[in-house]
């Protein structure tokens, strides 16, 4: 029982990080219809930048904020590249983001290095004792920050003018243009926002799992899986998908086989695609006519 509780806790912690990746992915997908395969590299960029800014002697808070800014800039660069390629098909845009992912990995190798890095937690290494298992401060931080981001996004899209404009643009581009909304600017903000969310995930995860230049590949793919499991296009779906995935992974690793842990996300992904193509929270109208 205690064991189970421990698995659930660690599952939820990792699940929230998947959720953050999934949300970032959803933000870009909703605004542009593009599947961004470099989302995982945004996570990596956030974590690695923070680690190296810390090494350069900057304080933790400053490194954190700078890392988010750097990653947002990377997001904007990706948007500029996509905007620059005219008349591209869906598949060539997918390849473009894949190429960008490879480029970022290469960049991280050159600017940083190929080693595994970790960093101290923002909130110290302490932990609560909960029903016999430990809940680290870092885990609590991840959960709190993730929930804050989800709530903030909700208010941003529902209550602020910019957010509403962004929603309108994602629903109907032509109508939004007629309303005088600057689509290009909106898309750019979306890419920056998405990158920022991913980088926060990267920074939060680094004290727990460490980071290196390749860490983004699996994280990105699992974030996509989370988004699709929850229902492509729904930020809340991405959170639900992330949590389901994190918990499933943790349980499989604990009770069945730790080696097959990474396969969980993809088995779940296939099960959802085959049997519930709209995802848990998504549009239930079949995407497979």
């Amino acid at each position: 029982m205690i064991e189970l509780f421990g698995f659930l806790l660690s599952g939820v912690t990792v699940g929230f990080v998947y959720a953050l990746v999934g949300i970032g992915f959803t933000v870009i997908y909703n605004s542009s219809g593009i599947i961004n395969f470099s989302q995982g590299e945004f996570v990596m960029a956030g974590g690695m930048s923070t680690v190296f800014l810390l090494k350069a002697g900057l304080p933790l808070g400053v490194s954190f904020i700078l890392a988010i800014l750097i990653t947002s800039m990377i997001g904007i660069v990706l948007y500029k590249l996509i905007a620059f390629s005219k008349n591209s098909s869906q598949i060539s845009l997918i390849i473009l983001t894949l190429g960008f992912a490879i480029f970022l990995r290469g960049l991280a190798e050159v600017v940083f290095d190929k080693e595994l890095h970790t960093m101290p937690s923002f909130v110290g290494d302490g932990a609560f004792d909960m029903f016999g298992t430990v809940l680290t401060y870092q885990s609590i931080l991840i959960m709190v920050v993730s929930i804050v981001i989800v709530v903030a996004l909700y208010f941003f899209f529902k209550k602020t003018k910019t957010g509403q404009a962004m929603m309108a643009a994602s629903i109907n581009v032509d109508a939004a243009k007629l309303m005088g909304i600057n689509i290009k600017k909106i898309l750019m903000i979306n890419f920056a926002l998405s990158a920022a969310i991913a980088s926060i995930g990267g920074v939060l995860l680094t004290p727990i799992t460490s980071t290196n230049y390749e860490v983004g590949i699996m994280l990105g793919l699992k974030g996509f899986a989370a988004a699709i499991i929850g229902g492509l296009g729904s930020p809340f779906g991405a959170v639900a998908g992330g949590l389901v995935l994190g918990i499933l992974e943790s349980l499989i690793a604990g009770y069945v086989s730790s080696e097959y842990k990474d396969a969980v996300a993809f088995v779940a992904l296939l099960a959802i695609l085959f049997f519930m193509p709209g995802g848990i929270f998504g549009n239930t109208k079949a995407q497979r006519v």
Partner: peptide, 12 residues
């Protein structure tokens, strides 16, 4: 890796 990625982006 960096150049490889850049070439893919360029072609696309």
């Amino acid at each position: 890796t960096l150049i490889y990625g850049a070439i893919i982006i360029f072609v696309m």
